[in-house]
Design a protein around this nucleic acid. Structure first.
Length: 425
RNA sequence: GGAGAGGUGGCCGAGUGGCCGAAGGCGCUCCCCUGCUAAGGGAGUAUGGGUUUAAAGCUCAUCGAGGGUUCGAAUCCCUCCCUCUCCGCCA
């Protein structure tokens, strides 16, 4: 959520900046509602104040044994007026709030203009693309012939957009998770957390998935109204919801492995083949809560932490900064890391690292105590995949494939696989 | 799943209709006293919002959450959530 004060005082500027994100802020509707809100709130609070003081004097009169009937008469009509005023205010506030909850974050100053993926700017390219003396296979051709990777089996068990892994491939999948966690914990100084995979509405509101993107989520069909997490970002970031973090505990740096569940409504027809787009996948997620002035620097570092995984695995990739039109709802700025997939002959997203600034914090009331002012202030949140495990597996299969149909195990991963150097299918 | 007890400020804990945003204690901050240590005295110490910006002032809300009763609710009623104890079940 954007700062209501900013929207009140500088709405045209906010609208202008949101244009970069291809979002049309309804300035007229908001200004009008805001005006109504103000007058009704002032009126309601005045009535409340009056009622409070009258009630107090009734109490005092009663304590002194005086007749309170005249006072009661005085207050009689107050209740109704207050009731009316309150409910009108409630309606206005809800309307305004619903409107504001649907307004995306303002992009950072250095976010390039653009409509979609095609307009993202390349920041760097890393690694040499592998060369093959045959047409490189895609991961499905490499692994799905045998039992190692099986979509039909998963379809029987669950449905489309699921997969099963068996044997060495399942082990490599697990090894990747372990490897990534170890690097982030030991080299990048993150604290590992384990969190619920089912979360409530408030948590999803906090990070911005709700109310706008309900269709992308799997919802549990019972009275508890829980949702399967689409990313560990949701439970991990919500650790600080309604909290005031001590300055000496900042910044908080969490790493979390979790499964992710996405309904991917509207994605049908895209990536129907293979494990690129699944309803369930594993991810190792980095989350940071930092002092506001530190978030830009933290964003660069966090992205570098994700890049380090790709570099250790010797996977060629490029880093792009998302243009306004491609930027997510809650993000102020995002770097995507795209890994090279020889089977597709292109770069594909494997990580997305975002700075949310105070957008999520404001929704969550996540604060830190600024020692300069000694007051609670909104902190900044960031997160990034480091990395999406399934897509990393795809990248290894395709980049490390050999003419005889086997796949080499990246050097960094071998200690996590009992020294195994090669997978065959 | 069954039975019971609870949820109050950073923590402990009082409060069962008005004088309560909340006693008292602990902790923390500042000051005083004291040649160290220990002890003692005083003051302060929740969060969010509104009031055209900031500060002050004024004001509203918040005692797990949401409704209700009442002129007035931490306190009474209803629903939900959570915690604890015992029994059952269980990885």
């Amino acid at each position: 959520m954007l700062d209501p004060k900013l929207i009140r005082n500088d709405i045209d500027n906010v609208a202008r900046r949101l244009k970069v994100k291809r979002f049309d802020l309804d300035v007229a509707a908001i200004s009008q509602l805001e005006e109504k809100r103000k007058s009704h709130q002032v009126e309601t609070e005045a009535l409340q104040s009056e009622r409070n003081s009258k009630s107090k004097s009734i109490g005092q009169a009663k304590a002194q044994g005086q007749d309170i009937a005249p006072l009661l008469a005085e207050v009689a009509s107050l209740g109704d007026r207050l009731e009316t005023s309150k409910s009108t205010l409630g309606v206005i506030q809800k309307e305004l709030n619903d409107l504001l909850l649907a307004v995306p974050n303002v992009p950072a100053e250095d976010v390039p203009a653009g409509d979609n993926e095609a307009d993202n700017h390349e920041v760097l390219v890393w690694g040499d693309l592998p060369t093959f003396d045959y047409k490189p296979l895609d991961h499905v051709e490499i692994a799905a012939d045998g039992a190692a990777l099986n979509f039909d089996l998963a379809a029987k068990i669950a449905g489309t957009r699921f997969m099963t892994l068996r044997g060495d491939l399942a082990a490599m999948h697990r090894a990747l998770i372990q490897f990534m966690l170890d690097v982030h914990i030991n080299e990048h100084n993150y604290e590992e957390v384990y969190v619920p995979y089912l979360v409530n509405r408030e948590s999803l509101m906090g990070t911005g998935q709700l109310p706008k993107f309900e269709a992308d989520l799997f919802k549990i069909n019972d009275a508890r109204e829980l949702y399967l997490i689409p990313t560990a970002e949701v439970p991990v970031t919500n650790i600080v919801r309604n909290e005031i973090i001590k300055d000496e505990d900042m910044p908080l740096k969490f790493v979390c492995h979790s499964p992710c569940f996405r309904s991917e409504a509207g994605s049908y027809g895209k990536d129907t083949k293979g494990m690129i787009r699944q309803h369930q996948f594993e991810k190792v997620e980095l989350v940071q809560m930092v002092r506001p002035e530190a978030s830009q620097q933290a964003h660069e570092e966090l992205t570098q932490h994700a890049e380090n995984i790709l570099q250790k695995l010797q996977l060629p990739y490029r880093k792009v900064i998302l243009c306004g039109g491609d930027l997510g709802f809650a993000a102020a700025k995002t770097y995507d890391l795209e890994v090279w997939l020889p089977g597709q002959d292109k770069y594909r997203e494997i990580s997305s690292c975002s700075n949310y600034r105070d957008f999520q914090s404001r929704r969550m009331q996540a604060r830190w105590r600024n020692p300069g002012t000694d007051k609670p202030e909104l902190l900044h949140t960031l997160n990034g995949s480091a990395l999406a495990v399934g897509r990393t597996l795809v990248a290894i299969l395709e980049n490390y494939q050999q003419a005889d149909g086997t796949v080499r195990v990246p050097l960094a991963l071998q200690p996590y696989m009992q020294g195994k150097q090669e997978l065959s299918f």
